[in-house]
Simulated scan of single mutants.
Amino acid sequence: MSQPGTVALTVEHDGSAQAVAFSRDSTRFASGGSDSVLRVRGVGVGVPLDVPCEGSVTGIAFSPDGAALAVADFEQVFLRSSTTGAVIWQGPLEPGSSVNTVRFTPDGKVVASTDAVVVVLEGATGASSRRITVDTPQIADIDLSGDGTRIALAIDERHGGDHRRAGSARVLELATGTELARLTPDDAVLAVAFGPDASLVLCCAADDTTRMFLADDGTQLWPTPDEVDEQVTAPNCLAFDPKGKWTVVGGSDGFARVLEAESGVEKCRAPKLAPGLPDPGAVTHVAFSPNGKVAASASIDNVVRLFDLGGKELYAVPTDEVLAMEFSPDGRWLGLGSFGRALVIDNGELGLG
């Protein structure tokens, strides 16, 4: 096993690699971006696959059985064979609108979104089984519950003809489109994440707040009205620990903070800066390893960091600007998309267990 922080795989792209994904068995890695080519590589061994696409690739997801790849390819969703790249089905969600994200439910349905609509597509045929239109776009982020029954939306209302400094975090039942909960901060909501049992939702907003609320009715759990935080952390990205005990929030102040999920109390932050050193700049991506013991962050200082729950830095790897970041399902690898290439970093035993 190589030293943690070793780059195990480099996939060259002629442009930005803005989408990455691992297969469920963690043996294959896919990347895509502005060069209109989907690239699939074995992590260690495997025959490389390069598939021409119609436009910029903005989202990739492996099917639960690993046999197919859902690809957000400009204005269409493609379902492709993960071994040959052959098209199984394709189609637009909304004519003239780019597809931003694709996800699989555990039973193999594809959930895809544009700025204003979420569509559930049958895995076998691509037929639409549910269409959810957002009344005040834009959709800034989505998260799918682990059981595939609910979707959380981050809504940013600073765009469009009726733009204003407003937004909301919403939870909807995917089968019916019924809204179950809505939380409305004082500005746009930038990111959302479900807890592992889908009962809690974490969100961060442009009003400098991070909030936890109940997915069933929108009740805010923290911060409480008497909790006044005068720190300007400018949260913009977040993730939930897969075990449900911790969350990690990245801010424009340069820190990734690990917060207790139950209370929102800060446990640690990374990086730990030596006196006199400049701050790393805004954190743009955060993620938890599946074992919940380590987290990763990427900042505009072009460094990716892995750290433990005490804030101890376990490695720091220089990169180009990170556009996408994802742990492999087994935690062994950290996949990155950046300008000109995609990378797979070896976490060694740090991410396993």
Rank of each mutant, 00 (worst) to 15 (best):
F78K: 03
G251S: 13
R332I: 11
T210P: 01
F213N: 01
A191L: 09
N100K: 12
S26A: 15
G311F: 10
R39S: 10
V265G: 09
E54I: 06
D197K: 12
A140V: 09
A116C: 11
G177H: 04
G331V: 09
D115P: 04
A316T: 04
V99S: 01
S338H: 07
R41D: 13
E230R: 10
V45K: 15
V102L: 08
G254H: 04
T114P: 06
P52W: 02
T27F: 09
A112H: 07
F29Q: 07
T247M: 14
P106I: 11
F339Q: 04
V111E: 05
G337T: 03
W246P: 00
D50Y: 02
A316V: 07
V232C: 11
F339D: 04
G33W: 05
D187W: 08
D65M: 07
V171F: 02
A342I: 12
F22N: 03
G276R: 08
V201A: 04
V258P: 00
I142N: 03
L214I: 06
T10A: 12
E157Q: 14
A30D: 04
H159A: 11
R103A: 14
S263A: 08
A61T: 01
L352Y: 02
L352G: 00
Y315A: 03
T178W: 07
F213L: 02
E54M: 07
R80M: 10
S263G: 03
V317Q: 05
S113F: 01
S97Y: 04
G32H: 06
V99M: 01
R164S: 12
G96R: 00
V99F: 04
Q3G: 06
P137F: 05
P225N: 02
V265N: 11
L214W: 09
A270P: 02
A152W: 01
T219G: 08
G264V: 09
S297C: 15
D65L: 06
E349Q: 08
S31P: 01
G55V: 05
S128I: 08
F29C: 11
L238M: 09
S16H: 12
V249C: 08
V258S: 01
V20G: 04
G55E: 01
L273A: 04
L273D: 00
L314M: 11
L153I: 02
D279T: 13
A181F: 02
G146K: 03
H163C: 13
V120Y: 15
K243M: 08
I139C: 13
G146Y: 05
V99T: 02
N236T: 07
K293S: 05
R150P: 00
G160E: 10
R28N: 03
P278N: 03
S289T: 12
P4E: 07
G123Y: 03
W89C: 12
K267H: 11
V322G: 07
D208P: 06
V286H: 12
P318S: 11
E75C: 10
A270H: 08
V120D: 04
N291S: 12
I142S: 06
P196I: 15
M1G: 15
L323R: 14
R332N: 06
G46P: 13
D208Y: 09
V322P: 02
A181V: 11
S299C: 15
F255W: 13
R165E: 14
G177I: 08
V45F: 15
G335E: 03
R28V: 05
L93Q: 00
V228N: 14
